[in-house]
Computed example of a mutant assay.
Amino acid sequence: MAQAVLTGSKLRLVFQVGMDEEGKPILKSKTFNNIKMESTTDQLFQAATAISSLTNGMLNNLERNDSSEILAE
């Protein structure tokens, strides 16, 4: 049986920084590496809210990307 071991976590913030000529949103993202793997969803949301208050863009999306290594037992 194989086992997945969590090896890392990243936090990606996507900001809407404007609109193009066709009225579609212009999005830019910023990724933060080495996020503590034990961080809760609420903690990550609070951090993203604090970071977004320092930018000119509006927070559009927030993603947590976990990486795992799959090991054979």
Rank of each mutant, 00 (worst) to 15 (best):
A2Y: 02
Q16D: 08
T31P: 15
G8S: 08
A2N: 02
V14F: 09
Q46T: 06
A2P: 13
D66V: 00
K10I: 05
R64Q: 02
Q43I: 06
R64V: 01
M1N: 08
T49M: 12
E21D: 05
S29G: 15
S68F: 12
L44C: 14
E63A: 12
F15A: 01
E22Q: 13
M19K: 14
N33G: 15
T49H: 08
Q43S: 11
E22V: 10
G18S: 07
S68I: 00
A48G: 13
R64L: 05
A2S: 13
G8A: 13
L54M: 15
V5W: 00
I35M: 14
K36H: 04
T49R: 11
N65E: 09
L27K: 09
R12I: 07
I51R: 03
A4S: 13
L6K: 04
S67H: 04
M19A: 10
N61E: 11
T40F: 10
G18K: 05
A2H: 03
M58W: 04
A48Y: 04
F32N: 03
L13G: 00
F45K: 06
R12D: 14
M19L: 14
V17A: 05
E73L: 10
L11G: 07
T41L: 11
G8M: 09
T55A: 15
E69C: 02
V17L: 10
L6F: 05
K24T: 08
V17P: 11
Q43W: 11
M1G: 15
A50V: 06
S67C: 07
G8D: 12
R64E: 00
N65L: 14
M19V: 11
S9L: 15
L6E: 12
S52T: 05
E73F: 03
F32K: 08
S67F: 06
L11S: 07
L11D: 10
A4G: 10
T40N: 11
E38T: 06
L62A: 12
N34Y: 12
Q43V: 00
R64K: 04
S67R: 07
R12N: 14
V14N: 04
A2I: 02
Q3S: 02
L71H: 02
K10V: 00
E73N: 08
F32H: 12
Q16A: 05
K30P: 12
A48E: 14
R64C: 00
D66L: 00
G8R: 03
G57Q: 05
S67P: 07
A48K: 00
N34K: 09
S53W: 09
